[in-house]
Design a protein around this nucleic acid. Structure first.
Lengths: 335, 335
DNA sequence: CTGAAAGCGCTTACAG
DNA sequence: CTGAAAGCGCTTACAG
């Protein structure tokens, strides 16, 4: 049906292999032959069949993107990761197969087993992620966004949550705050093994202890109206606290309206700092001083490393675990 | 490298074709043969190579999902469409190739030309969408989400924005409101040809005129702080208006905080109605009576129709343009 | 500089 | 009920 390399060859009066070489540039072609081939390609509107090429080369030029949408997750945060991965992949010549199935392990087995992809990026990796065994057994390489318990043999990329917490505590400490509330992700994130929760919280506690600060850690909520109720309860319970560190997407997104309703002014009544990306902050109009969570850098680095491993396995070297250095953006929400 | 149908055949002591038939079920296999084949498949961990299968059958079992991310777009709204499309596709046995390139037309040509996909879903279709000519020329079928000017030969799915506007005007009219503000999408959405903008606004104006209401249409903004400034300016300019219809994702998301800051109470000082999806409302904790924008239904219907056209082209019939019937959810934001 | 041929791993008429 | 063979549309050693 569609037009093939045979059609182009006939039209140009050469053999199919010559057309193939002309396209790939893998061997010299005389100018006149090349011209005829180019003309034929344009005239017939030829594009090489991806399946045939994949079969012949064992390369699909497709990367699988494995997302996880927990039912209780704050959805708007996900797209920030998907887009940079997709854009970086395309820059490097790869397309993205988006895999959103609930049965993530089965899905991973499927896309690697069928050879649909040359490699995979796993998003939202948790402490004991069931996908990792499957990934290790797969013939294709993979890159993780999110730090699991065991990183052996895997390329891992994550924000440095510990350092992020220390930067925020340092910032508040330098301003003279002595009693600080920390709102973590919801409890179920900890239960599920989202290590970023305790990595951030524990670092904040430790740093606070070193300075002799009072740090009050709380689990946050993921949805309204629970968010508003919990913030109000926490602030009521800690009337002498002067600063709030929010490490919770849903809570920080709702915070402006929660505080406005409560009549709490930032930074006059309360200093607020957080951790979110530029895009997220813009979407939700967040005015808070925050560590940039850099989903674009994470996605980009993961894809680049993955492609390196796909393209030149021998040169890619030992597995890496890379933490993005946090970057504080001051927005005047602290006093 | 990976294990093939030949390996399975050898292991089971049958021919490769028999293995293929056993897997596809396209011809009867004796119980004992079938048992040996099944055992071999499990023992070797065989999964058919997708590229080879695609080449042999000219079916990839992949659907291309063409998204458009306008730089000024309100990103959190996009994922609502992506997920239902992906989930529905998987239910029907298809994977999703996610295409996010800025050069949407070129990308569409690429994925259809290489035969990477069996069909495509175009998201966020505008009035004069440059992708449509390419789609019409492609050998694969496509389904649109969003109504273009010319629908010839295409399957189109969209919310009934006209009816949505009428339902909201009717609702306010029945409550006795006589002067109503309508906030539309940003002007650049109209400029770009996002027909949902004027379909909604014009229907609201027409309906209002029929009842003898005063309807004040305004373009909304897409980002803070412009959103807050514009809402404040509009409300100041129309002090006698008693109701606000918001057809603008970014504005409705910011409205609770804008109104709280302003000291405007809903519904005591102002009745507010809008148009957004359940998930969107939950993510942003929106308390407004609204028409449900049903991205899940749109995505699902588009994929189902597309798969019908892929699987049985002759039975799929003439192209359809289908409008989802709007559904009002009353949340008590009107008086 | 170019061509003929084998092969990638499946599916599916064609035979029996 | 099963097998041998052709073919899907490319790529790439092998020859010249």
């Amino acid at each position: 049906m569609a037009i093939t390399i045979m059609d182009v060859a006939r039209h140009a009066g050469v053999s199919p292999s010559t057309v193939s070489y002309a396209i790939s540039g893998k061997r010299p072609i005389s100018p006149s032959t090349r011209a005829r081939i180019d003309k034929a390609i344009v005239a017939l509107g030829f594009t090489a069949n991806a399946g045939a090429r994949a079969l012949a080369t064992s390369q699909t030029m497709v990367i699988g993107l494995l997302t996880q949408f927990h039912q209780d997750e704050f959805a708007p945060a996900m797209l920030q990761y998907v887009l940079p991965v997709s854009d970086t992949a395309r820059e490097l010549g790869y397309d993205i197969l988006l895999v959103t199935e609930t049965d993530a392990t089965g899905a991973l087995r499927r896309v690697t087993g069928t050879g649909m992809v040359d490699g995979v990026v796993l998003l939202d990796v948790v402490h004991e992620d069931p996908r990792l065994d499957t990934l290790r057994a797969a013939p294709q390489p993979g890159a993780l966004v999110g730090l699991p318990k065991r990183t052996e043999g895997l390329d891992v990329f994550d924000l440095d949550f510990g350092e992020s917490a220390r930067i925020l505590v340092d910032h508040l400490h330098a301003l003279g705050h002595r009693e600080i509330i920390v709102v973590s992700p919801p409890r179920h994130v900890f239960d599920r093994g989202g290590a970023y929760g305790w990595r951030f919280r524990d670092a904040a506690l430790e740093r606070g202890a070193r300075y002799g600060l009072q740090i009050h850690p709380y689990y946050g909520e993921a949805q309204q109206p629970a968010i508003g109720l919990s913030i109000n309860a926490i602030l009521d319970a800690r009337p002498t606290a002067t600063a709030l560190i929010v490490h919770n997407d849903a809570t920080i997104a709702a915070l402006p309206s929660v505080l406005a309703t409560r009549g709490t002014r930032v930074p006059d009544d309360l200093s607020v700092v957080s951790l979110y990306s530029k895009d997220f902050g813009r979407a939700f109009s967040l005015p808070y001083t925050a560590v940039e969570s850099s989903p674009d850098q994470l996605g980009q680095q993961a894809v680049r490393q993955l492609v390196r491993r796909i393209a030149e396995p021998e040169l890619a070297g030992a597995p890496v675990t890379r933490f993005i250095a946090p970057d504080l953006t001051v927005r005047g929400s602290t006093r």
